Amino acid sequence: MSNLKIQITRNENKKEKVPADQLIFGRTFTDHMFIADYTEGIGWHDHRIIPYQPVTLDPSATIFHYGQTVFEGMKAYLSDDGIVRLFRPEENMKRMNNSCDRMSMAKIDEEHALEALKQLIEVDKEWIPSEPGTSLYIRPFMIATESHLGVSASLTYSFIIIMSPVGSYYKEGIHPVKILVESEYVRAVAGGTGTAKTAGNYASCLKAQEVADLGGYAQVLWLDGIERKYIEEVGSMNVFFKIGGEVVTPALNGSILDGITRKSIIQLLKHWDVPVTERKVSMEEIREAYRTGKLDEAFGTGTAAVISPIGELRWKGELFYVNNGETGELSKKLYDTLTGIQKGTVQDPFGWVVEL
C-alpha cells in the first residue's frame, strides 16, 4: 500500500466540457495535473496535484537542447456500472522506467506513480466520458529541467501527468486505413532509442508522415534501418499480419517498442489457441502472401487506437488490398474483446484491469 502524500490544490475556474461527439484526440485537457520534482541527492519530492497550467522552465533547461524526455500513454474507462477501470497500468510505469534507463534519466517509484495517477483520476473523475468509443487518455511524462548547456544527464527532472477525454484516435475508427510502406526514412535502429518512448523517435517520423498524408495515407509502415526489407512498426503502433491462418508480428529486436497492447494481443491469441509467432517479417513475404491469396488480415495495435485494421498497403508502386479493404473477422474480435475487457463488459481472465 502506497504511503505517498500528495498536496492537492483544487481548480477554482473549471473548464467547460466538450460534448463527446466533438472530442478531437489530444485537444481537450482536464482541470488538474500532477507534478513531482527530482533533485540529485534528494530524490523525488513536492508531489502535488494542481490546476492544469503552463510549465515554466529556464531557456537553458536540458530538455530543450539535449532531448531528455520520456512519456507513456494509457487510458481510464468509465463503465455503465460507474466503475473506473485502468488497463495494465503497472506495465506502463515499468516501461517508463525502462525508457528512463535508456535516456539516463531518474527512475520513478512505480508504486507512487500509480498512486498519484489514481488520486488525479479521482480529482478529475467527472471528465471521464462514458459514450461508446470514448475514454480518458492519460499522458505521464518526464522532462529534464536542469539549467545547463553541457552535454550530460540532467541532475533535476519533473514527472508530470496530464489527462485528456478522447474519442477514436482515427476518424475512421475500427474501419480499415490505408498505409504507405516507407522506403526512404528510418524510424529507429537496434542500439538506438527505438525501444524507449522518447520524443525524438516521434519527431523523426513526422517527415515520412507528411509524405503519407499528401498521398492520402493514414500512416507509414516502417522497415528496418539496415536492410530496408523487414517490417518493424506501423506509424507509432506495433503491427500484425494474419497469413494463411497464422498470426505473425515482428519480433522485438532492439528497435521496436514493446507495446502493452501488443503483448496483450499475443496473450489473447494464445488463450484462443490461435497460432501466433514473433519473428522477422519481410515485405517480400507480405507481397508473396498477397499474390497467393494468403494475406488474410493486417492491423496495428496501440493504446490510442487499440486495433487499427489495415485495408491497403502501397509498396514501391504496388497496391495490396487486404481482405478487400474490409475489417477482418479476427481484427474485429480482438477489438471487441480487448475494449470489452477495458470497459468491464467482457470477463477479464488475465487480471489486466485495475478498478478504482
Rank of each mutant, 00 (worst) to 15 (best):
I266H: 09
D81G: 09
A208K: 12
N324H: 15
I286C: 15
G82K: 14
Y52P: 00
G244D: 12
G325F: 13
G150K: 14
G167F: 05
M74T: 13
N253L: 06
V151P: 05
T62A: 08
I128F: 12
C205D: 15
L149K: 07
E16P: 02
Y157N: 01
G351K: 10
D21S: 15
S282D: 12
E318M: 10
A304H: 08
K316Y: 12
T9E: 11
I307Q: 05
N324D: 15
G254F: 11
P51T: 08
I138E: 12
A298I: 00
I265P: 09
Q22P: 02
G317R: 11
V181D: 08
D37Q: 08
G302I: 02
R262Q: 09
G73T: 08
G302R: 05
E318L: 13
T193D: 06
F71L: 13
E210S: 14
A289T: 05
T277M: 06
I231S: 09
R228N: 13
L23W: 10
A153D: 01
M237N: 07
E115D: 15
K294H: 14
R314D: 05
E329D: 14
I265G: 06
T145I: 01
F299G: 04
Q7T: 10
P89T: 04
K107W: 01
L257W: 10
P19C: 09
I138S: 14
D31L: 11
S158D: 00
S168M: 06
V189R: 12
S264G: 01
G328L: 09
H47K: 01
T337Y: 15
E285I: 08
K75H: 04
M237E: 09
S154L: 03
Q53W: 07
H271S: 12
G191V: 00
M283C: 10
V234T: 12
